[in-house]
């Protein structure tokens, strides 16, 4: 099998580190840094999978030149996703493998939920604190988008949702899921260090994860300065690509997650609508 690795020189080099470890995959790297490069670009015919890591402003142009039958992998969600959404929807083999979806802690929590370890689900808390950032998709960051994708992938669609936004620094959203369990989603921006906290409950127990409480290495200098280390082994990008590769070799159905991305965007739209109207929203887009 052959993977076409298309992106900026820096991204291609980073992605190549992973693909070179997969013996069953030949790699065809293509560096695209400008619109000019796109006009000269032709994808060779025998490519099975495209790993697309071009910069945001070039992605639409590159996508237009790729055969819609080729499997495409993107490892980040871009702010202009609405522009190329049609291309994504036409292509049956499209996967967004975003960063938080592939972190070991979230993968582990998701597995427990999928295997119904908690039994009937109850009330959950998901909190992401981040340092100030430039919004990527409709005032949400990459990490926030990815966390929302994780929520959709783990728990399915929402039934109702009510959100409040305070000065774009603190968004709290109460999500009622289709099985009537609840999630309180908290996105706090610019309150010190970044931190993820998750608590999931069900009739059979509780799963709790706190980035702060699971930091294995803490360095404290004589002047009081502290530094935390959270070594994970394989880098996240490596995990993203590995996850996508596994899905790809399993076949078409397991690979495409366009529906999941669309549902994530629906949740984002509902959060924004609820904030604007100061009313709870239902899944069909109306007020409750």
């Amino acid at each position: 099998m052959k993977v076409g690795l298309i992106g900026s020189e820096q991204n291609v080099a980073m992605h190549l580190e992973y693909w070179s470890t997969v013996p069953t995959m030949d790699v065809e790297p293509v560096v695209i840094e400008s619109q000019e490069d796109i006009s000269l670009f032709h994808l060779v015919n025998d490519i099975d999978l495209v790993d697309l890591c071009v910069s945001e402003e070039l992605i639409e142009g590159v996508l237009e030149r790729i055969n819609s039958q080729v499997a495409i992998l993107v490892t980040e969600v871009h702010s202009n996703i609405d522009k190329y959404k049609d291309i994504v929807e036409e292509n049956t083999l499209f996967r967004f493998s975003t960063s938080m979806m592939c972190t070991p802690e979230l993968t582990s929590l998701q597995e427990q939920i999928k295997h119904k370890q908690l039994g009937r689900l109850g009330v959950h808390y998901v909190s992401l604190k981040s340092q100030p950032f430039l919004p990527v998709y409709r005032s949400f960051s990459h990490k926030e988008f990815s966390l929302l994708q994780w929520i959709v992938a783990t728990f399915g669609a929402f039934k109702t949702l009510y959100a409040k936004n305070i000065n774009n620094r603190y968004i709290t959203t109460q999500i009622r899921l289709m099985d009537d369990s609840f999630i309180q989603l908290e996105l706090a921006r610019g309150f010190g260090k970044g931190e993820l906290t998750i608590e999931l409950t069900g009739v059979a127990g509780m799963l709790s994860y706190s980035e702060e409480d699971t930091t294995p290495i803490q360095l404290t200098m004589n002047n009081g300065e502290e530094q935390a280390f959270r070594p994970l082994g394989k880098p996240i990008l490596h995990r993203q690509l590995q996850d996508a590769y596994h899905c790809f070799v399993q076949g078409e159905q397991g690979f495409s997650n366009v529906e999941e991305i669309n549902k994530t965007i629906q949740v984002i739209d509902a959060i924004n609508q609820s904030i604007e109207q100061d009313e709870p929203m239902t899944n069909n887009g109306g007020c409750q």
Binding site: R120, L121, G122, V123, T160, Y162, K164, T172, Q174, R176, D180, S181, F182, Q184, T201, G202, V203, P280
Partner: peptide, 23 residues
Amino acid sequence: VYAVFDTKFYDIPVEDCGQVILT
């Protein structure tokens, strides 16, 4: 206030969980 309650954990005639947003 906006509040949602339910009985999810136990077979009891009152709510055992919920979430509340107050302004």
